[in-house]
Design a protein around this nucleic acid. Sequence first.
DNA 1: GTGCTTGCAAATCGTTTGCAATAGC
DNA 2: GCTATTGCAAACGATTTGCAAGCAC
Lengths: 134, 134
Amino acid sequence: MDNTNILLSGYGIRPSVQRIAIMRYLLKNRTHPTADEVFEALREQIPTLSKTTVYNTLKLFVENGAAIYVGIDEKNARFDGYVEPHAHFRCKKCGTIIDLSMNGENYLPKEFNGDVEETFFYLKGICGNCKKNH
Amino acid sequence: MDNTNILLSGYGIRPSVQRIAIMRYLLKNRTHPTADEVFEALREQIPTLSKTTVYNTLKLFVENGAAIYVGIDEKNARFDGYVEPHAHFRCKKCGTIIDLSMNGENYLPKEFNGDVEETFFYLKGICGNCKKNH
DNA sequence: GTGCTTGCAAATCGTTTGCAATAGC
DNA sequence: GCTATTGCAAACGATTTGCAAGCAC
């Protein structure tokens, strides 16, 4: 009924109870959670879970391309299980982080002669919802 | 011979010995330094300078638009005295951060109905120099 | 002399590390 | 059994905060 273990294996990551639960959480909750948020959400379902494991696992996911590191929040690292290239918008009022289907790689200046391996596109402002309910 | 004090005043920042020295450093050294790097560079010229002042001042600059916060380095906050909209590329090999004349605001999807106030465009990879001397 | 600025020391807090206990083949 | 994984406690390190002393107009 759930193929998260297969997904992890596909990224070269050995599935474990903890790893599956964390990846499942990322995939079901597209809220770009912090490590702490993941930990708090899963500790009920896995009482022995430690924050260290959450940190290590999220790092492992990012290193293997199974998750994306979202550096839009200066205070905490955030994570995204949706790994297709896209941009992030963070509302300065409500803090919500929204995915934007946008990719900046195409807009590199011609004179740039390096190799781009990763692109991070962050935008900040006021989201449509906060504008409406201001 | 130097109008840094006028520049700061223009941003609504009262000039002081420390503030002028820090802004001058940012403008002369386009290396996107960390607060610590600024501190180390200036402590000789201002022996009483404290790291707290450097942190507070850089924060003040960013809040008033006199400098840009560069979040491309997950370990440290970096700062840029060049405030025109532009992107940053960080070489994974040598760590150098390069300015790129690029602005992502034009590439927003039409269905996005929020107000974008700030744009951060970060790229990582291998710079032309490291490619050449690999 | 009043208010802003500085700087020291201590606190904060997200994240990492060392290492022993545990689980999975 | 051997290796990888987990989790506790401690360490770490960048940044912030409290507050007293100093400076400027």
